[in-house]
Design a protein around this nucleic acid. Structure first.
Lengths: 188, 188
DNA sequence: GCACCACTTGACTAATTGGTCAATTTTGGT
DNA sequence: ACCAAAATTGACCAATTAGTCAAGTGGTGC
């Protein structure tokens, strides 16, 4: 069963993902969660702490799941990575990427959001770098500066999601990803 | 001299660029512009119309200036493009890219914003495509699908700006751009 | 000198915002 | 059964929000 705190974390993430932090209404979050105001203030000091906790816990958990496979594999790192990149079913092109949304909205406005998003985006880059390092380790790829390549890949992925959101056309994401894979394949 | 309308357009763009549309306070915009409320409502029907006009006029004008050179050149299209891409002085990595910011915040929330941003992002892609087509025309580049390449380039640029905003490190932008240029150079 | 009109002023409203808090109910330990 | 702590309820508050509007100003054409 979902605890009150979990209800709040989930409703907040969805509401912030849909309307942004500033656009997210506390009353709407409470209505969606089915939790009363005072109850929420029992668990969180204010709207900001609620949002920060919601973003951190939700995204870190999703990411841990998403990249766990790297630990369990012994080969085929790039192929598996491409497969997951190509999988559009896990994407929400209407709302975009939750990380990018919050970075864009809040990084220059609030220091606490800035700090959190820095660490989340950093973790994203680290996850991609770990895949590349594994690929090099098992000779699926030539040695190269994986920090920079991971930066390039994450940037292009975020750009691809943005392009699809802007045009309303998921194919734009696919097209960018295919070109990105061509680029990575040149490092074989 | 700046007209009242221009004052409003400029103050609004700056305020929306800094705090987002939803985070932009009408009172703050009016204070910054030095214009009274009723005066603003004489020119614009509401906050949304003000913001839409401000975004459209400001970005379209900036873009027209930025890519005018393509018309006047007869060669060196790619080199000039790279020089401009590498120029970090025109970038505001704290606030990011005004286009991306608004797309992220508003495209899935409001149909009018969605329509406007679709056309602005489309114009951005068309401008890059025009450069590539010119480059191919004068044999600086092998013929290729310039629509897709332009999509890839714009995506990567937006991702690069986002990465620099997230990390607070302008070097991230530079690193992504250099890798992007390597990719484009392979099409020579 | 007067009539017209674009523009300006700023007080006002209704709705919503995030936040407070005292009273109450529920829970778990002994 | 009893008690204390944890959790819940919902009325209330001050501040801010976008938006309205009647009254006024100043310039232009006649």
């Amino acid at each position: 069963m979902e605890t009150t705190r979990e209800k709040l974390i989930n409703a907040t993430f969805d509401e912030v993902f849909s309307h942004g932090y500033q656009g997210a209404s506390l009353s709407d979050i409470l209505a969606k969660a089915g939790v009363h105001k005072g109850s929420m203030y029992h668990f969180f000091a204010n709207k900001k702490e609620l949002a920060l906790a919601s973003i951190e816990e939700t995204i870190l958990q999703k990411n841990a799941e998403k990249y766990r496979y790297v630990e369990t594999y012994t080969s085929g790192f790039l192929e598996e990575f491409y497969t997951r990149l190509r999988d559009t079913s896990v994407r929400d092109f209407k709302r975009g990427c939750p990380i990018a949304n919050i970075v864009q909205e809040m990084s220059n406005i609030d220091e606490d959001f800035n700090t959190l998003m820095k660490s989340i985006y950093g973790a994203f880059r680290a996850n991609i770098k770990a895949i590349l390092d594994k690929a090099i380790e098992v000779k699926e790829m030539q040695p190269c500066d994986t920090t920079k390549l991971a930066l390039f890949i994450t940037s292009t992925i975020e750009g691809a999601i943005l392009a699809a959101k802007a045009s309303g056309n998921a194919q734009d994401y696919v097209d960018v990803i295919e070109e990105l894979i061509v680029h990575i394949e040149r490092k074989r």
